[in-house]
């Protein structure tokens, strides 16, 4: 109950901030319209933002920055990988769907892991089996089929950081 109310308040101020940034007009009618829309948003979708009962930790900020830097680097690498495959006259691909095991449990952490895997070189998340904690990943250039090696190679890049940030 309490976390739900907190989540609604955070959503209200977040949507109001986005409204102000988008409109960039500081007149009273525009601000009133923004407040009404932010209220509607927080009533209908306010409880969906996930807020955990944890204390603020400076270490977590550091891990988030490290994650963002690593993610950007992997994204750039992924794009040059795609460009190389697409330009190559013989299309050097060896596709397949492999399984990756994960230790993460929270929905938010799993979503971020799946998104990170999709935007890193050669891999695309197809499905998640939440009960068994298995991700099905389409790999454009399959190197291993063994579940332990794929977990180390695909999931290992982000799993530790996401565990520190979300769990």
């Amino acid at each position: 109950m309490k976390t739900e109310r907190k989540s609604r308040i955070v959503v209200f101020f977040l949507s109001l901030l986005i409204w102000i940034l988008i409109t960039m007009v500081c007149s009273i009618p525009s601000l009133i319209a923004g407040i009404i829309i932010a209220l509607i948003t927080s009533i209908f979708a306010g409880e969906m933002l996930i807020i955990t009962e944890r204390k603020f930790h400076l270490k977590r900020v550091w891990y988030t920055i490290e994650y963002l830097v690593k993610f950007t680097w992997e994204l750039i690498k992924a794009n040059f990988h795609v460009a190389y495959i697409v330009i190559h006259p013989l299309l050097p691909i060896k596709p397949g769907i492999v399984k990756v095991k994960t230790k993460l449990k929270r929905d938010s952490a799993l979503t971020m892991l799946a998104n990170s895997i999709t935007l890193t070189p050669g891999t695309l998340t197809v499905d998640i089996d939440v009960d068994n904690q298995i991700l099905y990943v389409h790999w454009i250039d399959v190197k291993f089929t063994d579940i332990e090696q794929t977990t180390k190679d695909i999931g290992g890049r982000f799993e530790k950081l996401l565990e520190e940030i979300f769990e």
Partner: peptide
């Protein structure tokens, strides 16, 4: 150029996002 829907999605998602 790529052969099936999954490979095409790979190229589409990564390059078009970036």
């Amino acid at each position: 150029r790529l052969p099936d829907v999954y490979n095409r999605l790979q190229a589409a998602t990564k390059s078009v996002t970036f």
